[in-house]
Simulated assay, not measured.
Amino acid sequence: MSLRLSTVILPHRRWHEGGRAAWTRAEQLGFHAAYTYDHLSWRSFRDGPWFGALPTLTAAAAATGRLRLGTLVTSPNFRHPVTLAKELISLDDISGGRITLGIGAGGTGFDATALGQEPWIPRERADRFGEFVLLLHRLLTEDSVSYQGDFYSAHEARTIPGCVQRPRLPFAVAATGPRGLALAARYGQAWVTTGDPKLYENGTPEQSVQALRRQAEKLADVCAANGRDVAELDRILLTGFTPDRNRPLRSLDAFVDFAGRHQELGFTEIVIHWPIPDSDFAAEEKVFERIAMEALAQLR
């Protein structure tokens, strides 16, 4: 399967002060998709500008015509399946069926406490995530849903007319553990990983490749156990969180080498961060654009 190249554009700029330009330029550069993070605030950007993911994607949908759009990733930390489903159906309609929902269990960052709750322990996050995905799947594929779970409920929730994409818009499930991988195997059209976080500080690129290989093998095993061919799932690597960090964006050759090694692992899509000066995602814009326009031709 050929490799696709996508980007993630953080929602930290006002729409009319560089925000819109990034999304339209992403389409001009030929990226397969452009995603954004679905957070209320995030890491070092917490005390600076940060805009909502779904309104940003709605504006991006109106400003572009070909580019796929989505979240990497949405989580239960501050979302409810009923209201999220309604917004996603609207966004899929506005975009003409170009939306992918990246979805994950969430973590213990700022989103975990922004609504005044205590951070959930890992088991509760996994429990909530399972219900969240199940209910969201039903809401996006059925006209009327009633559901009573341990964490989420719906009473005759209407989601008419449903998604433009049928039977619903695709889920890209972020997961590394057995329960998350099982959700990817059952409900996902794609699987997302950022690598092994334990290797970020002191690991090597070679160790990271081995860790990603093990993750991909686990996904294949879980898919087989669920009666699904792993080849049916796209496999997405969100870069910037492996020991390589942003080094693959230093030159076209460096990126081609990085992408080739991960394509050999079975990844079908690599996502790189839109450059942000003076941040963990700093990169030369000219090099970034050259990678977008030329890298895949060298890998084919």
Score class of each variant (00 low, 15 high):
residue 227 G to H: 05
residue 42 W to D: 02
residue 118 E to T: 15
residue 200 Y to S: 09
residue 27 E to A: 06
residue 23 W to I: 08
residue 77 N to P: 05
residue 202 N to I: 13
residue 271 V to P: 09
residue 214 R to F: 12
residue 1 M to T: 14
residue 260 G to N: 02
residue 83 T to E: 13
residue 25 R to Q: 15
residue 133 V to C: 08
residue 165 Q to A: 09
residue 215 Q to H: 14
residue 181 L to S: 04
residue 284 E to I: 08
residue 252 L to A: 07
residue 17 E to W: 10
residue 66 R to G: 10
residue 221 D to F: 00
residue 94 I to H: 08
residue 53 A to I: 07
residue 278 D to P: 02
residue 234 D to T: 06
residue 278 D to L: 11
residue 170 P to F: 00
residue 117 Q to S: 11
residue 57 L to F: 02
residue 174 A to N: 07
residue 166 R to S: 03
residue 214 R to P: 08
residue 131 E to A: 01
residue 106 G to H: 06
residue 145 V to M: 00
residue 271 V to A: 04
residue 261 R to G: 02
residue 110 F to W: 13
residue 95 S to T: 13
residue 163 C to G: 08
residue 186 R to K: 12
residue 100 T to A: 06
residue 7 T to S: 08
residue 290 R to S: 14
residue 70 G to H: 06
residue 140 L to Y: 14
residue 183 L to P: 03
residue 146 S to G: 09
residue 246 N to L: 14
residue 23 W to T: 00
residue 177 G to W: 03
residue 176 T to V: 14
residue 179 R to K: 07
residue 246 N to G: 07
residue 138 R to Q: 10
residue 90 S to A: 15
residue 267 F to A: 11
residue 120 W to T: 00
residue 40 L to N: 09
residue 3 L to T: 09
residue 294 E to M: 10
residue 22 A to D: 15
residue 32 H to W: 11
residue 254 A to L: 01
residue 3 L to A: 01
residue 190 A to V: 02
residue 286 K to W: 05
residue 219 L to S: 09
residue 291 I to V: 08
residue 288 F to G: 12
residue 74 T to V: 05
residue 241 F to K: 13
residue 12 H to P: 01
residue 196 D to R: 01
residue 26 A to F: 05
residue 72 L to Q: 07
residue 54 L to W: 11
residue 157 A to H: 00
residue 24 T to M: 13
residue 242 T to K: 13
residue 276 I to E: 09
residue 217 E to P: 06
residue 90 S to V: 13
residue 92 D to L: 00
residue 273 H to Q: 12
residue 120 W to Q: 12
residue 141 T to L: 11
residue 251 S to G: 02
residue 189 Q to T: 12
residue 81 P to Q: 00
residue 293 M to R: 15
residue 40 L to M: 15
residue 171 F to G: 05
residue 300 R to C: 11
residue 46 R to V: 03
residue 239 T to L: 07
residue 106 G to A: 01
residue 172 A to E: 00
residue 294 E to I: 07
residue 73 V to F: 03
residue 84 L to C: 06
residue 85 A to C: 10
residue 196 D to W: 10
residue 284 E to Y: 06
residue 191 W to S: 04
residue 161 P to I: 06
residue 13 R to F: 08
residue 9 I to R: 04
residue 266 G to V: 09
residue 144 S to D: 13
residue 290 R to L: 11
residue 102 G to R: 13
residue 3 L to C: 04
residue 262 H to L: 10
residue 74 T to M: 12
residue 104 G to N: 11
residue 247 R to M: 12
residue 159 T to A: 07
residue 28 Q to H: 12
residue 144 S to F: 01
residue 103 I to N: 02
residue 299 L to C: 14
residue 248 P to D: 09
residue 80 H to D: 10
residue 108 T to Y: 12
residue 38 D to P: 10
residue 147 Y to P: 12
residue 85 A to F: 01
residue 274 W to E: 10
residue 160 I to D: 07
residue 100 T to H: 14
residue 68 R to M: 06
residue 135 L to Y: 02
residue 120 W to E: 09
residue 146 S to C: 02
residue 122 P to S: 04
residue 72 L to E: 01
residue 171 F to R: 00
residue 78 F to S: 09
residue 140 L to H: 15
residue 112 A to I: 09
residue 240 G to R: 03
residue 1 M to S: 15
